[in-house]
């Protein structure tokens, strides 16, 4: 899609949205991203922000419903979809969503490891964690170690 000139009003809303995100104000982020997306249903960034706001507010049903109503935009957000399914205990659906991906990114692999753990597929979960440990370097190394220990304990 060609980059279009953004109006000053839209820029002002994005400034509000960035501020809300920086402040961890997910209610406000939801309000502003909903306004942006309502005004421009082609705005995939506003759509993404709206979905993340729902997730951060624990509104997983609302997130899934919004994705269902906007399936074309939602195809770009498989991690978010699978995460909502996981949190709603639709674990088999979450697994299916993640398995359908040709090249799952590290976030999807992380979620896959959690989904497999919940499904008591411990050996496969462990193998996903081993690969993640090798290929990631972020702020969650300790949490990942703890999760891997839980998986290992379940195998023994």
């Amino acid at each position: 899609m060609a980059q279009q000139q953004q109006t000053a009003a839209v820029t002002a809303l994005y400034v509000d949205l960035q501020r809300a995100i920086n402040n961890g104000d997910h209610e406000k982020a939801l309000k502003v991203s909903s306004k942006l997306f309502g005004d421009n249903p082609a705005d995939d960034r506003a759509f993404h922000c709206k979905i993340v706001s729902f997730i951060q507010l624990g509104k997983f049903d609302d997130a899934l419903l919004t994705m269902k109503k906007n399936q074309e935009l939602a195809t770009a957000l498989p991690f978010e979809k699978a995460y909502c399914e996981y949190r709603l205990n639709r674990t088999a659906e979450a697994l299916r969503t993640l398995r359908n991906l040709e090249n799952p990114d590290t976030r999807c692999q992380e979620l896959l490891a959690q989904v497999l753990y919940r499904l008591e597929e411990h050996r496969e979960s462990l193998s996903v964690y081993r690969s993640l440990m090798k290929n990631t370097q972020d702020d969650y190394e300790e949490e990942r170690e703890t999760n891997m220990s839980a998986v290992q304990a379940a195998i023994q």
Binding site: V52, Y83, R107
Partner: peptide, 21 residues
């Protein structure tokens, strides 16, 4: 039950808005 963190939630982050500001 062993401790198990929801790391995926921490990874459910907002996209960058840099080019929109």
């Amino acid at each position: 039950k062993p401790l198990f963190f929801d790391v995926a939630l921490s990874l459910a982050d907002y996209p960058s808005l840099e080019d929109k500001l």
